[in-house]
Amino acid sequence: MISNYKKKKFEIIVFSILLLLPIFIDSYYLDNISYFMCWTFISLGLAVIWGMGGILSFGQTAFFGLAGYGFSVISINFLGIAGVSIWSVVLSLIITGIFGMIVGYFLFYGGIYDVFIGIVTLAITLVLETFMQQTAGPEYAIGSARLNGFNGMQGMPTIGFESLQFGLLEGVTQYYFILLLAIIILISLYKFKQSKIGLVFLATKEDRERVSSLGHNVQKTQLIAFTIASLLAGISGILYTNWGGYITPDSMGLVSAALPVVYVAASGKKDFFSVFLGCIFFVWLSQTLAINGKQFAIIVMGLILVISTRFFPDGIILMLKNKLTEKIKWL
């Protein structure tokens, strides 16, 4: 166990910095970092299925959107009831998980593999986007919650305990909540990777048939991993909806669907921590470029992506992390 933590010195140092950050920076930047961290979970989910199991999904955004909309619809309908913001999060995650299982069942028990999974999941998220875009009319309402089409939903409560005056919308509470959530999830994912299911899942990437002939249930393992990934995407969806008080069909579209894939691949899909850090880095980078780069922002972003795959096939963040731990002995 101890040796395990020794290996993770780099991670521990980065998290210590992140934990101390609120002392040094003001509320705007803190909120902004919280926002960047909202996007890490959807990418971590992709790192589970893609990095570990070699399953490329473009459909993480479907779960992101479903959870965001689920949270909004439930919480708006039961506005004013005690603890609504908390249990609507739980409920929408359950729904997302069930949907993830259904999709996963369809994929893995239906014998769909490789790039076909990418296309099927892409089609699923595009179906959801196309449908949601045209739900502007009053006939598209679930209870008292209007779906409001392309313009998006608003009016959901902030996650928190109203009676205790504890809200998650912004500030230090939101920051620490998301950061601690990220730490817990990262530790759980490392544990998952070393668990029996995790090892079987890792092996399925290399050779499904051999794993199966050894008596392991390949489909079930893949289904479990896929459901975990969909839940992680759901967490991102809810946090994002909460952060902006807003969710649109846009978040399930083609561009949104490609972004997690790009971030994960460019960061280093085999290492969860690199994905976590890389996701923060790339969201920050694209925002910073948009502020300073004017119309060249998108070109620079594209160049960085192209160069990083050309020269660092395993991901630029993972490469940097490995270099750093190699160079500095005590890491």
Partner: peptide, 10 residues
């Protein structure tokens, strides 16, 4: 995926 996405942006 990443490289061609980058190319598409550029």
């Amino acid at each position: 995926v990443v490289a061609t996405w980058g190319i598409s942006l550029i």
